[in-house]
Amino acid sequence: MKINETIRQRRIERNLTQEQVANYLGVTAPAVNKWEKGTSYPDITTLPALARILETDLNTLLSFKEELTEQEIAIFLNTLSELLEKEGFLKVYEIAMEKIREYPVCYPLLLNVAMFLEGAGMYSKEGKKDLKIHKKEIEALYHRVLNSPNQNEKNYAQSMLISKYIQRKEYEKAEEMLQSLPEKTSVDKKQLQINLFLSRGKLEEAAKLEEEKLFSSITEIQSVLLMLMEIALKQERKEDAEYFAEVSKQAAKLFDLWEYYSYAAHFQLYLAQKDRVKCLKILFPMMKALTKSWEINQSPLYRHIKTKKTEKGFGLKLRKALIQELCEDEEASFLKECEDVQKLLKEAEADEKM
């Protein structure tokens, strides 16, 4: 953000008019107007007083320490990820917020840090507790991103806040923010990039982006199918719910997804129906699938997608977490006393210690 944009934004946030700022500084309102348009700039002797009026510092006013590149943000997030396991959530939170204080209007940083911290808080029981302590500060980051001149960043922050309002049953706030979202949030930039790669003969790059779009699309389709299944169950349309579960299973196989996804929909279906026999019948192969490695680029559909090597024992940890969740979920109470489920939990605990 340039100095003229910073002056205008901070003035509006402070509910000040151009005339008020001019009066405080002993200049004319047209002068302030020119500053905000970028056609002229404040005198250097005026800057300290202007910064105080706008309740900011000179670094921010002059756009020092404001922007980070996408690569720098990605590197910073990777650093936080590495520190999370060693130092824990609170340390990561402290470092993240310190970085934000250095770059208070770098909206991509604010948005990515907010999403990272929320994900990091779910990493462990301690993290969940710490996340609750700082949830207001993290949510405030999304509100700050609403000031971003970048519409995509702003829209994403809005979507995150809408979800939070819905979770808290603040439906009027959710509806108000939902109505403010444009029907089309952005052009398909990725498709334009693909077209450019094709025109320049960069087929590898084009294939990679197209494969990423495919994977993103099928993942979204799976989410839609699960939601349709949930709606059908609530409307007591049993046959439709079973159909959606079967389509999800076949789609997972057709599009070479992780084997686990071929079981997930049916398991949720049987869980909602409290069908103990069918739940247990599908639970065991589903748990086994979690321990199988999945290399997405082994499929011709995703040949150009590069992935990091899966952490050793990740599947076992995920299996244990899922079983633990089932044992704590009231909806799955009919499974809690099952000896086979208890045995699975003990096995998962034993595997994790190995």
Rank of each mutant, 00 (worst) to 15 (best):
A272Q: 10
E36I: 02
I133L: 13
L326Y: 07
L283C: 02
Q235H: 12
K213P: 08
S159C: 11
E352P: 00
E19A: 07
L90W: 11
K91Y: 13
F284R: 14
K353P: 02
K99G: 00
E183Y: 14
S217N: 09
C338E: 15
L83K: 12
I166W: 14
K169V: 09
C338R: 12
Q158M: 15
E13P: 10
E205A: 06
K288S: 03
E153W: 08
W35F: 07
L80F: 10
L141M: 02
T46E: 06
E220T: 15
V92P: 02
L257F: 04
E295R: 07
I12M: 13
Q151N: 12
Y171E: 04
A114K: 01
T46D: 07
P48V: 05
K208A: 14
K132R: 11
Y165V: 00
Y142H: 01
I3P: 05
Y270S: 03
E137N: 08
E339S: 04
M97L: 13
L50A: 03
K86Y: 12
I53T: 01
L257A: 01
L196Q: 13
E176P: 02
K173N: 10
S163F: 10
A207D: 11
Y243L: 12
M122A: 09
K2F: 15
L283N: 02
T69W: 00
Q71L: 15
S124C: 05
Y142D: 00
E259R: 10
L192Q: 07
I133Q: 14
A74L: 12
P42I: 07
L61I: 01
A332F: 06
E211T: 06
L110K: 07
N155A: 06
K234Q: 08
D275A: 01
E172I: 03
K312Q: 00
E70S: 15
E170S: 09
L225Q: 09
R319W: 03
E176N: 12
L226H: 04
L225A: 03
C106I: 05
L141P: 01
Q158C: 14
I73G: 05
D275W: 05
L316Y: 08
Q167G: 11
A289P: 00
L290V: 02
L269G: 03
G121H: 04
C279V: 03
L326H: 01
L271N: 09
F334N: 05
K65E: 13
Q158H: 12
K184G: 13
E94A: 13
Y302V: 03
G127I: 05
E328Y: 07
A289Q: 01
N150Y: 05
A49I: 13
E153P: 08
S262K: 06
K317N: 04
K343P: 06
V187Q: 10
K238A: 09
K238C: 09
L50Y: 03
E13W: 15
C106M: 04
E67L: 14
M115V: 14
K306C: 11
P285R: 04
E172V: 03
A321H: 14
S180E: 06
R237Y: 07
R168D: 15
N147I: 08
G26S: 02
A96W: 11
F76C: 05
A51E: 01
E328P: 04
Y142L: 00
L117E: 05
E295N: 07
A232I: 04
A321Q: 13
E337P: 13
A206P: 01
L50W: 01
K309I: 08
V113T: 00
A264N: 12
Y93C: 08
P300A: 04
I305D: 02
A206M: 06
K86E: 10
Q250K: 05
I282E: 03
R10L: 15
E170Y: 11
L254S: 09
